[in-house]
Design a protein around this nucleic acid. Sequence first.
DNA 1: TTGTAAGCGTTATCAA
DNA 2: TTGATAACGCTTACAA
Lengths: 345, 345
Amino acid sequence: MSVTINDVARLSGVSKRTVSRVINRSPAVGEATREKVLKIIAEVNFSPDKQARGLASSRSYLLGLIYDNPDALYIDEVQRGALSVCSALGYELVVHPCHSKSPDFIDDCLSFIARSKLDGVIILPPVSENKALAAAIRAANCAYVRLASVDLDDHDNIVVSDEREAMKEMADHLVELGHTDIGFISGPRRYRSSMERMEGFLAELELCKVTLPPERIIEGKNSYESGIECAHQLLGSVDSANSSMKKRPTAIVANNDEMAAGVLRVASDLAIKVPEELSVAGFDDNILASRIIPSLTTIKRPVSNMARLAVQKLINKSQSAESEKITLEELIKPHLVKRESTDKK
Amino acid sequence: MSVTINDVARLSGVSKRTVSRVINRSPAVGEATREKVLKIIAEVNFSPDKQARGLASSRSYLLGLIYDNPDALYIDEVQRGALSVCSALGYELVVHPCHSKSPDFIDDCLSFIARSKLDGVIILPPVSENKALAAAIRAANCAYVRLASVDLDDHDNIVVSDEREAMKEMADHLVELGHTDIGFISGPRRYRSSMERMEGFLAELELCKVTLPPERIIEGKNSYESGIECAHQLLGSVDSANSSMKKRPTAIVANNDEMAAGVLRVASDLAIKVPEELSVAGFDDNILASRIIPSLTTIKRPVSNMARLAVQKLINKSQSAESEKITLEELIKPHLVKRESTDKK
DNA sequence: TTGTAAGCGTTATCAA
DNA sequence: TTGATAACGCTTACAA
């Protein structure tokens, strides 16, 4: 059917083994021989069979993507970023959404890896924070890189974005606008990323002499619905009679855009004008953020670059210029995006 | 290292060949033998090596997903839907976003298929409408299924959703609300799906004795920005002095939610109240649709089910109950979702 | 119904 | 620097 290494060997008058050496860039091949073989390879348009190669060398040229994150926008950006590096290097990307709450999810991921003998996997947050999963994958002798907001693994196994720092920007932004009474809707406290964002935000506020009382800080679940609930608590729900008498915060920051969208919804329902009477901000720079009215001040992470870096680490080709790696490291910093939803107090 | 077919053969006292038969559900195996082998397989937790299997049978157990659609929500839903079927059947999903405008994109797709010897690919709209691509893939002897809104291939190679019919629902909805002066922002006319939606909508309006003059029908590009432009044309832009004197449509329907979001933005900028002064509707039931204020009346396609059906067709296991196939066919109809953005004229 | 032996297209061992 | 030859783990003619 298609042309094999045998054809190339025959045509170029050398042994199979030598062709293999050429393919794999072995230095132990005479210059003349190499060129002769390469010429034939080009002529007949030979490309080695991945399966056969894998069977013999126990590699698959397949990379996996493991995630429990429901944010489609985020996933899509990661996939495209990862692919831009991987397919250039002859690797393919296999996707695996998983259920981190399911009791056998670790086995499920291991099976995913084993089934296709993946050469490596990228693990996205929040499941990337799962210590047991990382340990299991390492034990299974599979390469992995986690994307995370905290430095919780060896440098080779992680790509971290400094979300804490980004939230400081957010705090400064609001303080500059004159806000001192701010509500904060955190993500689930069991996630390190939630804590990073919250701590970064609160610490910077402290530095600016702004302290939030406990009732201004609420734990949300990162969902739109949860954002609505928390907003009601912060803004005073309709049904509690005297709640509207209480002083409201002049700004609310949420752990992500979905919850911030929930806040906007509640503000709209309660006829609270944003940003005139209330500033609102999120995190992610979801597609929502730019489309919603008013458009949302938020934090943008360079997700695509994080994914590229992850693949680079995984494939660990020191061949692919050191310089680019360094560049990418620089391109990983999240940053504030100012839009309509925040304004002067 | 790991357990192979030879181990199983030795342990169960039969030949390799017989184990292979058991694995592949060959009927030509004695009941007693089969059970004995299955028992051992379970005991030693054997699972056949995909690469070896593929090398021998020239299959890869890999399915590809080809798309040029930028809608991350849609892609994500397709992926999850497809995976729910494929991984249950021992297949993996490899993703391939492509650039259908690039001149060598067909070669790129063919190379993607060849590189990993994919057993089949699912092609998503709009590139699924590309005749040349489908022809090339067929010529390459690779199985494929296209998702589309029009019946433009053999029944085995396509999963169609009746978007024309769904838009009739939309038309009826608006007519019921009393709208007779309606603006329509179509998608690019070169896409069949755009034409289907538009024609379905207009035809049903005709049946209801509502006719739209040509200036009420504008071709958009499916993007948010394009939605904004078209909305300005329909609603009268700020800069044209007497435009606000002209009569405005009382409703605007867009080819997708992104453009409908653009319409909402313009309405907001022009202080036109939705839905009081203007009804707006989209298509897709994007995440935007439920989050935006006012929430958007739109059409929801059962994307996940379409993807599942596509995989089923691809793997073409008549073993997997006929009954379920039929069920899925039924579950593929798009339908209207009424929300806040449309109301009585 | 079961088994033998020959591949599938590579890489790896070892010798020349 | 090169080349026979044996894996790699499975499927598939062909027999029995």
